[in-house]
Design a protein around this nucleic acid. Structure first.
Lengths: 198, 198
DNA sequence: TAGTTTCAATACGCATCGTATCGAAACTAA
DNA sequence: TTAGTTTCGATACGATGCGTATTGAAACTA
């Protein structure tokens, strides 16, 4: 994610500073959102000069993306119950989204991506990492023959996550508990879920 | 959407200027996106002074929202074929999204909405208007008894639009033609679509 | 005719991004 | 030890863009 490696002669880059910058970025992002975060504030909070930041990331946007990719993966349960596994991971995703402005930031980045194509290069892997747990759960179910063999996995991921994200970002209707389970039941039925018990 | 009515004495507000401002806003939005649009550029393109703009809308954000609500509704066909009607409206939505950065702007606004709650008041009606054609199509199908009587209509709208929007904004995989139809077939199956011919 | 509001033009304050400069610090290589 | 290189913090700076303020003319009401 950095711009240049630090091999050769000269003073080595401070790993400490790098961590402090990314931590400060995440904290300010969580406290004030993307627009409320300023480069100078990050520098002050991380006790670092701006040159140290811009040597690593070419813009505020890149910095934010780098900070995002530091976030831990969502815990992907594998209870063997497809519906329950999906409910779990979606609920934990929505919990994060409701208690931090990360969802809003993600939407902002998506909007920027539509215009700034160079951004996709950095953003797409990050998004794919968020899709991966869902993909894994679906893939496990396929191996248990609970889903059709010819299922388009990427399309299925969109079908599973799309309605919840739609509601979270745009509709802004209640989403915890019942609605999530209901949405997933509908989607799984559409995908041709073959329940293990019949 | 304006801040103050124009009754009473004094020079009346220019309807012409208002239209020119909104048109210029839409054009710049389509050409350069939200960040590429500047208030001064809008003023120049509309041949209007900034005071004329700020007298009507208190910020760039409000102006953009006002311009958005000027956009025409998507044409809601009613052929009697539920799948085809939904394919049509989603395709025309995606056509706009692919040929202009308006979709990206919508994402940007959604991101802002997550932080700026006062914004929801203006944005939600606008989003609801975009959902309405889909809601109408689904409602028509319900009256034809092609969908269950107890269907949660709002949830169904999210299920229909969510996967496509997910793919458009985040996944960024191909979306025209086959995938749209396939996604809708899966969703309708999950919703319990009772085909008219069987 | 007097009072009120909008108009275009323009200047201004202010925040913020990203760049540039500087001398000190930390490292490599000879 | 010494010369060369890169990063460091501190700080200043240019550029951009939002939103406000001022001013005199224009368009309306009473």
């Amino acid at each position: 994610m950095n711009t240049v490696p630090q091999t050769g002669p000269g003073r080595p880059r401070s790993e400490e500073a790098e961590k402090a910058i990314l931590d400060a970025t995440l904290q300010l992002l969580a406290d004030k959102g993307y627009n409320g975060l300023t480069v100078d504030k990050v520098a002050a909070l991380a006790s670092v000069s701006k040159s140290t930041m811009y040597r690593r990331w070419p813009s505020k946007l890149h910095l934010v993306i780098a900070a995002f990719s530091q976030l831990p993966q969502l815990p992907s349960t594998n209870t063997g119950n497809l519906l329950q596994d999906l409910v779990n991971i979606l609920e934990s995703f929505l919990n994060i989204a409701e208690n931090t402005p990360l969802a809003g930031v993600l939407a902002t980045l998506a909007g920027e991506q539509a215009r700034n194509h160079e951004l996709s290069e950095y953003l797409l892997p990050l998004i794919d990492a968020r899709r991966k747990p869902v993909r894994d759960i679906l893939q496990n179910a396929m191996q248990r023959h609970e889903l059709p063999e010819d299922l388009d996995l990427e399309l299925a991921v969109d079908m599973v996550m799309g309605p919840a994200i739609m509601r979270m970002l745009f509709t802004r209707a209640p989403l915890q508990g019942r609605p999530v389970q209901q949405m997933l039941e509908i989607t799984l039925r559409g995908l041709g879920w073959l329940l293990p018990e019949g």
